[in-house]
């Protein structure tokens, strides 16, 4: 029998938390280890279908959170629901989860085909043979390699075998802990496209990675953990726009950069200004709204042709650095 998350408290009702389409709901989730190490503290987060990137520096609690939502470890306090149930107690819920664990451990003596086939059989897939071949094809494992033992595989090929066993039963929730480790650039692109495709099919994909450039390609929805706590959740561009107190860096290209920079620096919204070359300069502003007006005025008064205005810190890496650095 699956359990539903309890109704939201009165303070949460206004925001209707968790959202109706959430497949993963953690409420006040904490995990401590012997010796007092707190891996997660009072984490409340709801994740719905599509691709969500789980970010955080080493020791932020990402892997612990992933283990909790697969039921691999018990929460110290708080609750977690995945696909409407508790994965620790409910076998049917576990059947709806696919996991690529971070660790390299794999059945070294097993052939890759048998490894994926075993997962299909244990998930009671109707036609495990076809499902196995389909999953192996999705991760582009060469059919000629299927009888080789996993122990003879490169790290990248093992990683693809791990992904194949996680998707062989067509799960609703797919948890991928550093799934791109060991893959070459072509395979990384292929896997990112595969995760997108699964997300578009309505599956909930939670991916952790420490390579932020790649995470940015997974999509814009992120959950950021820092020191076991939720640092931010949502679209990283929206998160950046909410960080009003964090000065923004903007690169400007025009034909008279010295003149435009001189006018801008007089403005109270500009904190600093650095000339790069004959065409570009960089400013730091604490008020993006005011800056947008002032740059237009400054160019007009300087009789300068503005050719480029590029925010320099609205990429995921900057947002991540600000979020994690703040805490």
């Amino acid at each position: 029998m699956t359990q539903q998350p309890p109704p939201p408290s009165s303070s949460q009702q206004a925001e209707a938390w968790p959202p109706k389409d959430s497949t993963i709901v953690a409420r006040s989730l904490s995990k401590s280890f012997r010796g007092g190490l707190v891996a997660l503290s009072e984490l409340s987060v709801a994740i719905g279908p599509g691709v969500t990137a789980l970010l955080g520096p080493n020791g932020a609690g990402k892997s612990t959170f992933m283990r909790l939502l697969c039921g691999l470890t018990k929460a110290t306090t708080g609750d977690i629901w995945v696909a409407g149930g508790n994965p620790r107690k409910d076998a049917a819920v576990r059947g709806r989860i696919g996991l690529v664990p971070q660790q390299d451990g794999i059945f070294e003596r097993q052939q890759v085909y048998d490894f994926v086939y075993l997962a299909a059989v244990l998930h009671n897939v109707d036609d495990p043979q076809s499902a196995t071949l389909r999953a192996l094809e999705l991760v582009e494992l060469n059919p000629q390699e299927l009888t080789r033992p996993l122990g003879s595989f490169s790290k990248g090929m093992r990683q693809r075998a791990k992904i194949a066993q996680a998707i062989v039963h067509d799960p609703d929730v797919i948890v991928l802990d550093e799934p791109l480790n060991g893959l070459d650039p072509k395979q990384r692109r292929h896997m990112i496209a595969l995760f997108h495709s699964l997300g578009e099919q309505g599956k909930t994909i939670l991916v952790s990675s420490h390579i932020l450039e790649e995470v940015e390609r997974f999509g814009s929805h992120i959950v950021v953990l820092s020191k076991g706590r939720l640092a931010a959740e949502g679209d990283f561009r929206s998160i950046r726009s909410l960080m009003d107190h964090q000065p923004r860096k903007v690169k400007i290209a025009c034909d008279k950069p010295k003149n435009v920079a001189a006018r801008l620096i007089e403005s109270s919204s500009i904190a600093s200004c650095t000339l790069h070359d004959e065409e570009t300069f960089e400013i730091t502003t604490a008020d993006a709204g005011a800056f947008r007006k002032e740059i237009a005025i400054a160019c007009q008064k300087s009789d300068s042709l503005l050719s480029e205005v590029t925010p320099l810190d609205e990429d995921l890496e900057s947002v991540f650095r600000y979020l994690v650095g703040e805490r």
Binding site: G71, A92, R94, G95, I97, P101, A119, H123
Partner: peptide
Amino acid sequence: VYLWLKPS
């Protein structure tokens, strides 16, 4: 983990 997470 490859056995534990299965619904068997």
